[in-house]
Amino acid sequence: MSREDPPTNAVLSVRDLSVSFATRQGVVRAVDGLSFDVGAKEVLGIVGESGSGKSVAMYSMLGLVRDANVSISGSVRFEGREILGLSDTEMQSMRGGEVGMIFQDPMTALTPVYTVGWQIVEQLRAHSDMTKKAAYERATELLAEVGIPDPKSRVNHYPHEFSGGMRQRVVIAMALSCNPKLLIADEPTTALDVTTQAQILDLMGRLQATHGSSIVIITHDMGVIAEIAHRVVVMYAGRPAEIGPELDVVRSARHPYTWGLLGAVPRADIKTRRLVTIPGNAVSPLEVPTGCAFAPRCQYRMEICAQRPPLRGADDHLDACWLSDEQRLVIRSSATVRGES
């Protein structure tokens, strides 16, 4: 994967994004105070378990959460321009144009009733003045670029005629068709087998290097983050628990939730003895504590955890936890957080 380009100026800048839904049972705070930047050519990973708000955060930014009971606040700047509250037409010209999207299930991202070529052409023509003929040629080129064999004939095939991995390549070709500055990929490899996942991650890494797009990749898999991301946001219950460079977060995680998440992964590369477990279940979004959201499951809980911890830290490695650096040192040296007991 290409990692040589460090983040420079932010392409996407999210500040204090909150998304809540009014339901009959009460207010669901799906995203609560999320802030991060994505630099030019940077790959940012957002990791969290189901219900952590990682997808809702991205969808709401792009105006894809169309629910009468939703309220979105905060600020989302794309290339310096505020995009929260843009009109539908403005949003539409941005989505698929400057911002490309890759979804988890390629079958739902493609319509089954048109050929893949037709679908790419439609997108190209919606965002440019290309003629039909030129757009078809470009579609064929794009399929070749994402590694689909025999693109000249495949461009006239329907999605069901492709395998899962090939379909995801088509979706990537579509997402890249208008040379987006930002690519948002929601669990792009989760539905794929490990060998296909490797092909797709490899492709995304190469395309990112050649097109120079920034990528936000949403995943539940810390391994995928380690493969492709420069920086990572760990989310829990709609809030950022920890943000930092990928290597720092994996090697010197600061938040107890991140410790649990890393220790719970059964490894294919080394022998794991007993897995670290986080006791209990994910907190109900209706009952997120006013203090630290993770406190009810945290074995290092203190009195102060009844208050919400600020996101703080040194340089670019931030965490939302009341533990002091000394306390963390003691806990980490006990080695139980990594399942090395």
């Binding site: 380690a226 994996v250 590369d269 990594r338």
Partner: peptide, 25 residues
């Protein structure tokens, strides 16, 4: 090949296995 492409956590300095990406389906 299967083992070489499992995403790994970069939590040690040990070099990772060389990735063998098998093509096709």
């Amino acid at each position: 090949a299967l083992l070489s492409v499992v995403p790994e956590l970069n939590d040690t300095d040990a070099p990772r296995r060389e990735r063998i990406i098998i093509s096709g389906d």
